[in-house]
Structures are given as C-alpha cells and as structure tokens.
Amino acid sequence: MTAEVRTGAPAHGGLRAWLLAETVTSPAQARAQKLYLGWRRFASNPLALIGLGIVVMLILLAIFAPLVATYDPFAQSLERRLLPPSGAHWLGTDELGRDIWSRIAYGARITLMIVLLVALIAAPLGLLIGTVAGYLGGWVDVALMRLVDVFLSFPGLILALAFVAALGSGLENAIIAIALTAWPPIARLARAETLTVRRADYIAAVRLAGASDLRIIVRHIMPICIPSVIIRITLNMAGIILTAAGLGFLGLGAQPPSPEWGAMLSTGRAYMLGSWWLAAMPGIAILVVSLGFNLLGDALRDVLDPRAS
C-alpha cells in the first residue's frame, strides 16, 4: 500500500503532504486522506482508469451531442441510405439514410438517461426492502423475501412486458419497467449486508440510546450497504442497456425515430450481412459503455470494499 503511494507521481507541494501526513489534525483531513488513498488505489489500476474514461466520455458525448453530431440525427435521405462508413458519414448511414454517428451521439443521452433513472429507482427500492427485511427479521423478512423470490423467478421479459403493457409503451414506461425488474437482486444484497451488521455492537449501542427502528435503518444500516449497492448497480448497467434494447426489439421501448442504441441495434439486425455497420456501430457503442461501467464497478469494489483488499 505505502509502497504503491511512494512510487507514484513526483511530489506536488503542500497539498500532497497534507493528504499523506502521518498525523491527522482534523476530521476533514482524515476524510480527504481516505478519499485520496482510495483514488490512488483506483488510479493504479489501468482498467479502472479505462472504465472511468469511458463513462466520462459517455457523459461528455451526451452533453455535447449537438456539437459533435455532424448531421441532424432525424434527417432522412432515400438517395443516401445504407452508405458504408466514409469521410462524409463517419459510421455510415442507416436504412432511411440517417447518419449513424449523429444518431449514436444523440442516443448517448437516451442511454445515459435510462441507466441513471433505472439506478435512481431500483437502488433505493431494493435498499429499503432489503434493509427492512434484514433488520426486522421474523415474518417481515419471510414475507419480503418471498416477494423477492417471486420477482426473481419471473421470466424477466414477462415482467417488463407486463409493466410496459399496463403502463403503455414508450421510453419512460420502459425505464420504470426495467427498474421494477432490477430491484430484487439489490434487495437480496442489502439484506445480506444488513444481516452481517445488525448484531454489531454499535447498532446495539444506538438502540440502547433509544433510537427507533426506522432511524437505525436509515441512519446506521443503509449507509453501510450503500457502497455495495452502488457497485452492484454499476455492474448491472450492461444488463439494463441490453434489456432496454430487448424491449425496443419488441416495439415496447423507445419509439421511432428515437436514436436509442438498442432500437438501432435491433433494426440493424435485418441488414447484418449486407450492411454490417447498421448493427455493428450501436452494438459496439453498447459494448464499450457496458464494458466501461463494468470496469468502473469492479474498480470501485476493489477500492471501497475492505474485504477484497
């Protein structure tokens, strides 16, 4: 550990010294040191940096889509359909003559929105159910875990389809549907984590001090579970993007002409042998982004999870 730190970049003045000081003078410094050391561990892993780079690129692509896109992503041209990649169309054109690079750039916004919203819905839901089940135990645990089992053993497609069908097709509803299928594994994980800490001395101490169950769960148990939940959801990003693509394939995800990557991929399927770039380009985009999220998730686990060190 320390060896790693010392072989790092050359010293950079007082801040670095402060971050590495043996004697800590304030809680802020302690926290900053912890973060910094975590970052050093993270940065020493090339795959982690690649993962981070990819995710940052995705975010930049989404933000600056109008600037980097070379064409209107919706502009069609029957004369210029199915053109292979060239100087004019970097990634070629699709079956209606739309520029694929521009569509991928704009599609980054949709992809990012899907993964973020799913994470924002599924993580808190799973966390809540898992911690409550784990902390309270007894019949609450049994009932909630049965529910989790039922949801887990559902054919994923049916569940998502059913929600989409009930809510109506469209991207927002697809997102909700995917989120509703993504929470059970998180709940299981959160429950397992809760079980390991609920007998801990400090929890007992808090309880003796008169804290309510709700307070204990929200203030003391959930924070313990959050790192592993974040890691888990990061690792699930690829699955989320591919599920969205699957719904798009059945006509239930993003509706045309939206440049959602999954929808582009499934349209491109029909042209795979003749015009390979239609499927390959969005396919590679999905591949790279999910690779990025996975590498990032792995690295976060290495940094945040003390057991893995």
Binding site: L47, A238, I241, L242, A245, L265, R269, M272, A279, A280, G283, I286, L287, S290, L291, N294, L295, D298
Partner: peptide, 15 residues
C-alpha cells in the same frame, strides 16, 4: 480474461 469475459457479458447474443 476479464475483458474477454466482459465482452461475453455485454455483446448481444444474436449478433
């Protein structure tokens, strides 16, 4: 091993 594995994880099966 990890990257090849991750590709297997995230490449669409039909492709």
């Amino acid at each position: 091993v990890r990257v090849v594995g991750l590709i297997g994880y995230s490449a669409p099966n039909f492709w």
